[in-house]
């Protein structure tokens, strides 16, 4: 019983990090029709930005804030301006290819220009663990869950409760009618890119302390985020959450009870099953063909 609870908690914590990356992924798709194959690299870059900040002797929180600002400029506005805007009229596929190319370029730049090796990043949470009734939960897991949870709840509140948030949702649901309603579509789309960039920085802050910062760390995070988004429902924000947590927990359960060798396989089988049987995702709504 203790095992199971512990597996569930740490799986949920890992899943929450996947969910953050997946959340940005789905937001981009909804608002801008972008499938971002460089999402993992969007997590990797801020990790290195924070690393650079720490190397200059900055405290973690300041390095994090600076990384957020840089990410918003480069991975948010810059990405939109330079890559997405010129390409979006060509359709989904060229943009997908471009983000694939971008992922390779970003990864290789870090490798050639900075370092091919892994680097440690200090954890924002204390070490040690909390023991309640024979169940041990590490502070890092608790902290991850708390921070990720706060961000998700905050984001939901923003999207549902504020005027800007609702306007963004309107854009996501139907760009044309949003425009007719007088919503500044361009600005709303820009906001989505900014939010995606900041979510990536948070994911980097949470994931790098245990996984280490490395130029290719985006491969596995990107893939997980991608799986999570599709399993949960590509066009649903809540879907990304469900998908992320589901993957994190299932991986832990299979790794523990069945075989660690096929740990990665769980998410995959679930993913293939969803694609083939319910392509819109567990929580998603079927999309009509826009053509």
């Amino acid at each position: 019983m203790g095992d199971l609870v512990q597996l569930l908690v740490s799986g949920t914590a890992t899943g929450a990090i996947y969910a953050l990356a997946a959340l940005g992924f789905t937001l981009l798709w909804q608002a801008a029709g972008v499938i971002n194959f460089a999402q993992g690299e969007f997590v990797m870059l801020p990790a290195f930005a924070m690393l650079a900040g720490l190397a200059f002797g900055l405290p973690v929180w300041l390095a994090f804030l600076i990384a957020c600002v840089l990410a918003a400029i480069v991975l948010g506005a810059g990405f939109k301006q330079v890559v997405v805007d010129p390409l979006i009229r060509h359709g989904v596929i060229p943009l997908v290819i471009a983000t694939l190319g971008l992922a390779i370029a970003v990864k290789s730049t870090v490798r050639a220009g900075f370092s091919a090796e892994a680097h440690p990043l200090p954890s924002p949470f204390p070490t040690g663990q909390l023991s309640i009734a024979g169940i041990n939960v590490s502070y890092a897991d608790i902290g991850t869950l708390a921070l990720a949870g706060a961000i998700v709840i905050g984001l939901q509140a923003f999207l549902n409760r504020t005027v800007t948030g609702r306007a963004m949702q309107a854009v996501a649901q139907n760009t044309e009618s949003a425009r007719v309603l007088g919503i500044d579509v361009r600005r709303m789309v820009l906001y989505v890119f900014l939010i995606n960039a900041v979510l990536a920085v948070v994911a980097a802050l949470l994931i790098a302390p245990t996984y280490l910062a490395k130029f290719d760390m985006g491969d596995s995070i990107g893939l997980k985020a991608f799986f999570a988004a599709i399993i949960g429902g590509f066009n649903q924000t809540r879907g990304a959450l469900l998908g992320g947590v589901l993957i994190g927990v299932l991986e832990n359960l299979v790794g523990f009870y069945i075989s660690p060798a096929y740990k990665e396989g769980v998410a995959l089988v679930l993913f293939l099953g969803v694609i083939l049987l319910r392509p819109e995702g567990l929580l998603g709504k079927a999309e009509e063909r826009k053509v």
Binding site: A98, L100, G101, L102, A105, S108, A112
Partner: peptide, 10 residues
């Protein structure tokens, strides 16, 4: 090489 390659793709 891969940096140029990636950028060239974009």
């Amino acid at each position: 090489y891969l940096v140029f390659f990636g950028l060239a793709v974009v």
